[in-house]
Design a protein around this nucleic acid. Sequence first.
DNA 1: GTCCAGGCCCTCA
DNA 2: TGAGGGCATGGA
Length: 277
Amino acid sequence: MDGGLTDCTWAVTHLNLDQLAESGQVFRWTHRGDGSYAIPAGERFCVARQTARDRLHIRCSAADEGFWREYFGMNDPYDAYWQTLQAWAEQDGPEAYLSRAARVADGVRVLRQPTWETMVSFVISQNNNIPRIKKSVEALCRQYGTHRVTADGDAYDSFPPPQALAPADLSRLGLGYRDLYITHLSRAALDGSLPANLHGMDYADAKTALKSVHGIGEKVASCILLYGLGHLEAFPIDTWIRRILDREFEDGFPAGRYAGFEGLVQQLMFYYERSVQ
DNA sequence: GTCCAGGCCCTCA
DNA sequence: TGAGGGCATGGA
């Protein structure tokens, strides 16, 4: 069913699978005993392994190599982002908050995930903790996704499309009040009140469209723009980022330095803050 | 048992 | 336009 599987080896910089797994933007990665990760995304699946600091190995359906390159940001200019980050770190000094975050989180990227999965996952994320978000997303996929097995024998559940979620009674999944938000979102995706071409819209229009859905506010919309629509200028502010901004940037956050990839900087801050508790 | 979590909606001033 | 309360649930 997968067709042939293929092995890809990519030269990478500023990419660390272990950091990405703990970065709070993915909820379905599974760490396996051999050090690899089983990674479902939407309908797809791959096994990823970091064989060296600068080597990433992917085993996936032969037709999906381009998807996974995009997913991992291989088409994004991370070397340029990091030139800017390191230039400012040198100017700020090693003890500056962003300098410390950049040192610790230097393998964190902003992944380009399937839009629909990102929308649902971040609706679930609101006022929630990451272990529980993972359980909820897994339950959703197990109940309403499609069970699949690759040619290697790896089993996974695809992420359920709006058609599967709109008519479902989600009240038994333990999602709390978010179950109705997902129902609203699924219906909006089907009846067209949520535009199908979010990818073709500019940042402001896409954000307005997202926020028109009952249950999607400023923060969740920003996460969808960042992780699900590739707008690296989005800067989601959750409780963690709010604390950092209040504590470390009383005079304002210097977003202008990082114009066009503020969301990556936000991701480094989020990872760093949680890594030091 | 208490606090908190990658918030949002609604109400009221 | 902003502040405050309510909301479901479970992890720590």
